[in-house]
Design a protein around this nucleic acid. Sequence first.
DNA 1: CCGCTATGTACCCTTGTGGTTACGTACGCG
DNA 2: CGCGTACGTAACCACAAGGGTACATAGCGG
Lengths: 101, 101
Amino acid sequence: MDPVFAALADPHRRTIIELLGDGPRNVTTLAAALPIARPGVSRHLRVLREAGIVTAEAHAQERVYTLVPESLREADEWLSARAGFWRQRLDALDTELRRNS
Amino acid sequence: MDPVFAALADPHRRTIIELLGDGPRNVTTLAAALPIARPGVSRHLRVLREAGIVTAEAHAQERVYTLVPESLREADEWLSARAGFWRQRLDALDTELRRNS
DNA sequence: CCGCTATGTACCCTTGTGGTTACGTACGCG
DNA sequence: CGCGTACGTAACCACAAGGGTACATAGCGG
């Protein structure tokens, strides 16, 4: 989970994830859509790969990167648990405080 | 959204969020549950505060921090959109590829 | 007022991160 | 083979981030 959140911290990496949402892409195509040079994109992809968010498949001399959506599920569950469950809990606490005051 | 993801990137900050899930806490209490000294916790709380994830309320000379769960909703939506929607999309793509091969 | 408690902040240091350029490698093509 | 293409990686740099210690501040309590 940790590497997933770390990967998500960088805006460029989130952009890459969004681009891959439209389908598999190679490095050059991704780099063309980003404000940084290709080597930089390559390293971002390495981070995403090690986090299990994308997978690379060698296709001739180009490597096609594909999104692995279920890799985000763990982080998603962590977030939604706190965005929803505790919301109710704190509301209840707040209500009780108002009643006692 | 960006500051939220940036805040979530640090494990200590996520621990703080989890601790605050059990209810409001002051800085000293949080620091006792973390492997770092209090000033460090104080700075983490500053980041979380500026990201809108927690709010501070002065209570005597102690400041009680409270979680703001809905602040995580934006990030949660971003994640769940990619963890679910694109999942189906890629499955469909995969199915089509198998059919054509 | 004085001291104690609870915090935030400034300062310093070390490490991590993101970017660039230059270089090495793998593979298809003629 | 020799070339061009598509990548990954190494070397190098500048800067942001996280941690610790020391210090300033704000309230309580007596």
